[in-house]
Design a protein around this nucleic acid. Structure first.
Lengths: 352, 352
DNA sequence: CCTCCTTGTGGAATCGTTTACAACGACGTG
DNA sequence: CACGTCGTTGTAAACGATTCCACAAGGAGG
């Protein structure tokens, strides 16, 4: 593959001049510029990004470590992140943690070894000293969706508390009183926050959230199935189930189907995270929708701000309830605008 | 960040010795080895992959360019590719083409600039001289799922012809005679092959596939909706629609719903590519399933073979029909094993 | 005792860039 | 005419690793 030396030789100039032309340095004559450009075209020369990175100490690459590529929520997030990053001249390297802390660490480590300019992470359950050390050592890090409390790292996330309250109101109105939740891993913020939000919302109606009605899942389909089977085996099963993510809802649907039960007649189902397929399930599923695209864009903005030496701000956006038929509403109703679309809290860090 | 020089200084040896320890070179004394290892641990040293790549001319990274990250088929493929690559000591950098040739070229170019060791591509519609030139110039390339005819590049794919025949037999048995297809872009092999397979299968029953019953989509949901609306507007609409990928099926379902029609009573629906959600749609959707995981693994094997100087073989696996209720079968039937799971054709190249 | 081989080690070149620095003409000005 | 300034260029030193080569020390064998 042609190198800058070949170009310099072909154009009859030094490598410094070639470099200057390529980097739009002002002081190079029109004559030299055109000779270099001609040589570049003739040789099909492309600068070696590896060498360039070594010299400049920047890769123009961002690492994105997500919980699970098979989860449409993360996939949509990844897409918006890549798009926003590309617009700013960065590429994105995705690492799929599969909800496993060890795999997450593997990806963080290889991304760090490759000297990515910054890291966007939706941390898997657990502490990850590796990640925290990297952040402390100066690698620009931004958390997105999930975060690790106590770290001095900006967080870009959605607050679902209002939407959860709306959901509980909706369920209560439809007569459901015994409500259960399939929680995510307690080691993740989204895992525990959603339970807390649900419990608080229930409390407003004087409804308790007893331990038997909290199932512990891991954000993947199989766990949703297992937990739901447990619920259905209870002496007094719940009459509504709230899954903390879409994959666990899929599992719940499986378990309910397998018993020959019907949604919503025998049991209601609602989900955190809305995805296109929920319109088409039997029945269409009531869900809490995050502003996923905006989260991705805000996260990239924050990370690139940190990378380029500006102050990065934490951002919290609002989620909203999308009512469909899985909780027993007679017909789909219009989605009410529940709250201002966006709230931004400038100085907030990991311990909001 | 600590460099190899710091380690050498801390251990009281030369950088050459540190390098030898790190690369398990045999001739280094136990004494020196332990001093180096201690220094590495003390400094938290990690070798700079950028510098290493520049020197060794290999990055241990594979590029994977897929049609669309939002498509669960590609997402599953990406997952299995990453897993297989990791097992062989490679990482994977994913590029999402969004079905756009220009975006595909963008990703191919940046991956090439980053000097990835090899490229796995499911090409978007069009020729992509860039890609073909790279392959010709010696970059190891393997096509997966889709391919570009005429290139001397190994192909790893599934052959759906038998499954399509099974599907048409199934539809015919259920009384459907006027069958339509939502095709993918003619510029992709999967786009045109699936139409051909469908036409051939219909011909065996003496059924024609007229132009009005071939809709041209782009593998994304919106086009499925548009094409289906066109079908429904025909003086004599089809009584069954076959979507060439799962996203277009989603769009078709939207369009059918919007008219207040029911699947399968008013119109039957079948899909190429099976995904977990199809079990839960209303009704569950009959689909042709590819052995996606095995495709990913075979593709990585082939690419790494090429990278490491061994001969790479093209691989063709079989897809199979999964019958559910969207074509009107009274109840789900057991899935018959239609054919041997796997067929491998050793010397086949891009012009099979 | 001298030679030869083996083993362990360090010096230095190298990969393909960027960039500080110096050199060099041309030119305007006092 | 001398001198500073400006614009353009090339030389060479990095960046952080790997690896070729030379060399020293020590043991084996004649």
């Amino acid at each position: 593959m042609a190198s800058i030396k070949d170009v310099a030789a072909a154009a009859g100039v030094s490598v410094a001049t070639v470099s200057r032309v390529l980097n739009a340095h002002p002081s190079v004559s029109a004559e030299a510029r055109s000779r270099v450009l001609a040589a570049v075209a003739a040789l099909g020369y492309r600068p070696n990004a590896v060498a360039r990175s070594l010299r400049t100490d920047q890769t123009h690459a961002l690492g994105l470590v997500i919980g699970d590529v098979l989860n449409p929520y993360f996939t949509e997030l990844a897409r918006s992140v890549e798009e926003a990053a590309r617009a700013l001249g960065y590429s994105v390297i995705i690492g799929n943690a599969d909800e496993r802390p060890d795999l997450q660490d593997h990806h963080v480590r290889t991304l760090l070894d490759r000297r990515i300019d910054g890291l966007l992470v939706s941390p898997a359950p657990g502490d990850s000293p590796l990640l925290l050390d990297a952040a402390r050592a100066g690698t620009p890090v931004v958390f997105v969706d999930r975060w690790i409390p106590g770290a001095d790292v900006p967080v870009v996330r959605a607050d679902g508390r209002r939407a959860v309250r709306d959901l509980v109101a909706h369920l209560h109105l439809l007569g459901h009183r015994r409500l259960a939740i399939i929680a995510g891993p307690a080691g993740t913020t989204t895992g525990s926050e959603r339970v807390t939000a649900f419990r608080d919302a229930l409390a407003a109606y004087g409804l308790p959230l007893t331990d038997e009605l909290i199932g512990h899942g891991d954000f993947q389909a199989a766990s949703g199935r297992r937990v739901t089977e447990g619920f259905l085996d209870l002496p007094e099963p719940p009459d509504a189930v709230f899954a903390a993510d879409n994959l666990m809802a899929l599992g719940a649907l499986d378990a309910i189907r397998a018993r020959g039960l019907r949604v919503p007649d025998d049991i209601a189902l609602a989900v955190f995270d809305d995805i296109p397929w929920f319109v088409h399930t039997d029945p269409p599923i009531t869900a809490i929708a995050q502003p996923t695209g905006e989260l991705g864009r805000a996260a990239v903005r924050a990370l690139v701000d940190r990378i380029e030496g500006r102050a990065a701000e934490s951002v919290t956006l609002d989620a909203r309830l999308v009512v469909r038929r899985s909780c027993g509403a007679p017909a789909p109703v219009l989605i009410p605008p529940t709250s201002p679309i966006r709230r931004s809290t400038p100085v907030q860090r990991s311990t909001p």
